[in-house]
Design a protein around this nucleic acid. Structure first.
Lengths: 201, 201
DNA sequence: GTCTATATGAAGATAGAC
DNA sequence: GTCTATCTTCATATAGAC
């Protein structure tokens, strides 16, 4: 493992701090309402300095999203190593993890509608590669779980995948948190509605 | 029924046209990305004229939301009159309706995070009254369905209510529509995941 | 690379004639 | 009430000194 020069380590640490702040702000108020002034203030540097590290606001958000996807990939590795889990158990573990991230205020939220950010992300090859990688690993587990009869087969795998992604940024979590419920209970409830459905079993 | 003076009828028709345009734009790009210039262009009047009818951008969005809630109230009446439906059936009918509205591009979407719009809406008594009314009628059906053993009782009614609201603006619908699936099938899929859950029954 | 100061543009809202 | 033209604010992005 080659050691980086000290100056590059410093630069890396600073960029991590920037992405930290962006992640927090993205989780708290979203892309449109986040301003570069706020980011700079949060990090404690001048706004112009931000642009020495990232080309644009979109690039900043993209960096936060890429870090999230890397965290997700790491989590997928961890869950895959848990040999006591079956495919459904793995999916549930990952969904639980995403909800925990959101309740911790660390889930950067993108505008679901089209915007400058969406187009920037779709043109970002690194981001798209990461996203595709995570999607395909999840899809594999979904297919296994369906084949094993653990997941319902009335709905195509595609729909299951999108549903799981949607739970990662479900606004219901924030509403329940605002209602004063503890995180663990919130997660249990939303896990129950997601996997067991609203109808009585 | 007193007949309004002609001039007021004209005014009313114009304001309806404005709210139509706002509704479309809110559904398509959301509050933050909608601009007053676009609204004016869509209606075919000057931007300054908008302000003769509505005080602010927030007031414009509030008008669209209020009209949606009135449509919802009307739908609740319609479903309540269907005597062949039980409480669960009524809830499902309403959720189906909301999904249809969204797929038709007529569901104005609010930013889920705090913003100027949220505070404006919370201060709007007409809006809050409508919202509370719809919530309470739905809550009544939820309680009935739980008492009848049709809805799972592991989750509090509150959570069921929020989950149903969330389905009305579920981004999964738009993604599936972009995937080229017909509206009816999309609705069936999301209804299945919502009420039956992802796990096999 | 960091800063202060500024350019540029977009968007909400208004002035004032008709 | 409708229009054109304008005001004001604010946010992205950049210039240029150190």
């Amino acid at each position: 493992m080659a050691r980086l020069p000290f100056s590059q380590q410093v630069r890396q640490a600073r960029e991590d701090a920037i992405v930290d702040a962006v992640n927090r702000l993205l989780a708290g108020k979203g892309f449109d309402l986040m301003t570069m002034d706020e980011v700079a203030a949060e990090v404690g540097i001048a706004k112009a300095s931000l642009y020495k590290h990232f080309d644009s606001k979109e690039a900043l958000a993209a960096a936060a999203m890429k870090r999230l996807l890397n965290r997700a990939r790491f989590e997928l590795d961890r869950v895959e190593a848990l040999t006591e889990l079956d495919p459904l158990g793995r999916l549930q573990a990952v969904v639980r993890w995403t909800m925990g991230v959101q309740l911790a205020g660390e889930m950067p939220s993108l505008p679901s509608q089209n915007s400058s950010l969406r187009t920037a992300l779709m043109a970002d090859m690194d981001y798209m590669t990461l996203l595709l990688g995570v999607s395909e690993r999840l899809s594999g587990w979904i297919l296994q779980a369906q084949a094993a009869g653990q997941l319902g087969a009335t709905v195509p795998p595609e729909v299951v995948l999108y549903t799981l992604f949607a739970r990662a940024c479900d606004p219901v979590l924030a509403v329940l948190k605002a209602g004063g419920h503890p995180d663990e209970r919130i997660i249990d409830w939303v896990m129950a509605t997601t996997f067991d459905g609203l109808r009585a079993r």
